[in-house]
């Protein structure tokens, strides 16, 4: 259809009419009409939320995107526009790529372990009758620990001189050197991150399990003797919405929220230690004073996570049954 001048005028007219409607707080459908005396009132109501989102999300995002195109003077005296050079530098750096590889590995391992163990504990806790409340509270309480504290507690467990995990490894003839050996540190990072995330997954899986109707479980009990089959064919599909939600939350957690844990373990350690992309953004930007490079990295990270989430929704969610 071509845009004849007449059509354009018509479009403008409807747009203008709509604007006028909006301004006067009237809509064609009286049921949908907003019940405010003045058109600005609803905007006032959403203003606080909008302010928070703009100040803490959009503004920094825009800042990150702009500064990713500049090289900034380390002392803040000025900046030079360099186009996509920061992106090229990051993607061509072997250090960046190895951090990205570790992040992927870390993300998959932590998500899989945290989801798996959370589900296992929830299934077992769901069967507990006596002392169920105590059991649940004990499992959930870990969630109340702040991530840096979790990192510290974890650090104590992995301490090279007095940590129980180091001692246990020692019994098997292995010297665990967290903070010095790359993979030893990785193990500590993964263990602590998983431990911190299990309670969260546990709560959601448990409530998901408890929302499976008792009679449906009983019907399954009559249909098959095998507990594994009942779990696989009936319980698990009904948990799928919960699991899908947790998958996205867990991936975001491993990508971003493990920062304090990594910081506690890796900070001030001398050797080449594993870290995630987020921690590298922080290191390069605030320790290395390379604001432009670190901004470029954070934009890349943002795009990757957004893509991941879109992919999950497109391909996984189709297979999820919402009750």
């Amino acid at each position: 259809m071509t845009d004849t001048p007449l059509r354009i005028i018509e479009t403008e007219r409807t747009l203008l009419a709509r604007f006028r409607e909006w301004w006067s707080g009237e809509t064609a459908n009286p049921v949908k009409r907003v019940q405010f005396d003045r058109p600005l009132t609803p905007w006032l109501f959403i203003l606080p939320q909008m302010a928070v989102v703009v100040i803490f999300f959009y503004w920094p995002s825009v800042q990150a995107v702009t500064s990713s195109f500049y090289i900034e003077d380390p002392f803040g005296f000025g900046s030079t526009f360099v186009g996509l050079e920061n992106y090229q530098d990051a993607l061509n750096s072997s250090e960046y790529m190895s951090t990205a590889a570790f992040t992927a590995f870390f993300c998959i391992t932590v998500t899989a372990l945290a989801l798996g163990l959370g589900l296992l504990l929830a299934v077992k806790a769901d069967k507990v009758i006596r002392g169920a409340e105590t059991y649940k509270t004990l499992l959930i309480s870990v969630y109340a620990i702040a991530p840096p504290v979790a990192g510290l507690i974890g650090m104590m467990f992995f301490d090279m001189h007095m940590g129980p995990f180091t001692q246990i490894a020692g019994w098997f003839g292995y010297e665990l050197k967290v903070g010095i050996n790359y993979w030893d540190t990785a193990i500590a990072l993964i263990t602590i991150s998983v431990w911190k995330q299990i309670p969260y997954n546990f709560i959601f899986f448990l409530s998901g399990l408890q929302s499976v109707p008792v009679s449906v479980r009983e019907a399954a009990l009559i249909d098959t003797k095998s507990g594994w089959r009942r779990f696989k064919d009936v319980t698990l599909p009904l948990l799928a919405p919960t699991a899908f939600f947790l998958l996205i939350i867990n991936i975001t957690y491993t990508m971003f929220d493990t920062f304090p844990i990594i910081d506690v373990i890796v900070k001030d350690k001398p050797a080449n230690n594993p870290m995630t992309l987020v921690y590298k953004v922080y290191l390069d930007g605030f320790k290395g004073n390379d604001i432009g490079g670190s901004s470029a990295q954070s934009v890349i990270l943002m795009v990757v996570v957004a893509l991941l989430t879109v992919l999950q929704f497109r391909f996984l969610e189709r297979r999820v049954h919402y009750g």
């Binding site: 109707p213 009679s215 449906v216 009983e218 019907a219 399954a220 009990l221 009559i222 249909d223 098959t224 003797k225 064919d233 009936v234 599909p237 009904l238 799928a240 049954h321 009750g323």
Partner: peptide, 27 residues
């Protein structure tokens, strides 16, 4: 229950919500 050779009809039907009618019967 699965070994007793019985079939039960529940008050709230207790159908498997994620399975088709065919699969519900065939399970």
């Amino acid at each position: 229950p699965a070994e007793r050779d019985i079939a039960m009809v529940f008050q709230n039907y207790a159908l498997y919500p994620h399975m088709s009618v065919r699969d519900n019967m065939a399970y």
